[in-house]
Amino acid sequence: MTRFTNRAHIARAVLESMCFQADVIGSPVVRPADIETTALGAAYAAGLAVGIWTEEDIFSTGVKGEGDTTFRPKLDEETRKKKVASWCKAVERTFDLADLSL
């Protein structure tokens, strides 16, 4: 980050980091066709609270909405391990940065 970093840069970094985390753990990412999932989540939570649905009803495996897009990881195991090791090393390097500003 620099003094020229703006909101668009932060938003892009967040999106890229989600994709990176999904790729390194080998998890597919499903982009729902319905982009208004906030209201749906609230309805599910309310339904769970009053017993209309169970968690199994909502989170059953293999359910894919019509029009959803699934992105599958493309990293092979060796590349995945290298990227995770590199990420861990980068995180470790940041641990003492707070002390440098004193």
Rank of each mutant, 00 (worst) to 15 (best):
M1D: 06
M1F: 10
M1W: 04
T2L: 06
R3I: 05
F4L: 10
F4Q: 09
N6C: 07
A8M: 06
H9E: 11
R12K: 13
A13G: 08
A13M: 05
L15N: 12
E16A: 13
C19M: 10
F20N: 00
A22P: 02
D23K: 04
D23H: 09
V24R: 02
G26V: 10
G26A: 11
G26T: 06
S27M: 15
S27Y: 09
P28K: 12
P28F: 12
V29G: 01
V29D: 04
V29H: 02
V30H: 01
V30A: 00
R31C: 08
P32T: 14
P32R: 15
A33D: 08
A33V: 03
D34A: 05
I35A: 10
E36N: 15
E36M: 07
T37G: 12
T37Y: 07
T38R: 12
T38C: 13
L40G: 08
L40E: 15
G41E: 06
G41T: 07
A42C: 09
A42L: 14
A42Q: 15
Y44S: 15
Y44I: 07
A46F: 04
G47H: 01
G47S: 02
L48K: 01
L48E: 02
L48T: 00
V50K: 11
V50N: 09
G51F: 01
W53L: 05
T54Y: 03
E55Q: 08
E56Y: 06
E56I: 10
D57Y: 03
D57V: 03
I58D: 03
I58F: 04
F59W: 08
F59T: 05
S60H: 09
S60M: 12
T61K: 10
T61W: 05
G62N: 02
G62L: 00
G62Q: 00
G65D: 01
E66D: 04
G67Y: 00
G67D: 00
G67S: 02
D68W: 00
T69M: 05
T70V: 15
T70W: 04
F71I: 14
R72I: 04
R72T: 08
R72P: 04
D76A: 01
D76T: 02
E77Y: 08
T79R: 15
R80P: 01
K82V: 09
K83E: 01
K83H: 03
A85Q: 03
S86P: 03
S86C: 09
W87N: 02
C88E: 15
E92K: 14
E92A: 14
R93I: 06
T94Q: 03
T94E: 11
T94R: 13
T94K: 10
F95L: 15
F95N: 13
D96N: 13
D96R: 11
D96K: 10
A98G: 07
A98F: 10
D99Q: 06
D99V: 05
D99H: 07
L100F: 06
L100K: 12
L100Q: 13
L100W: 04
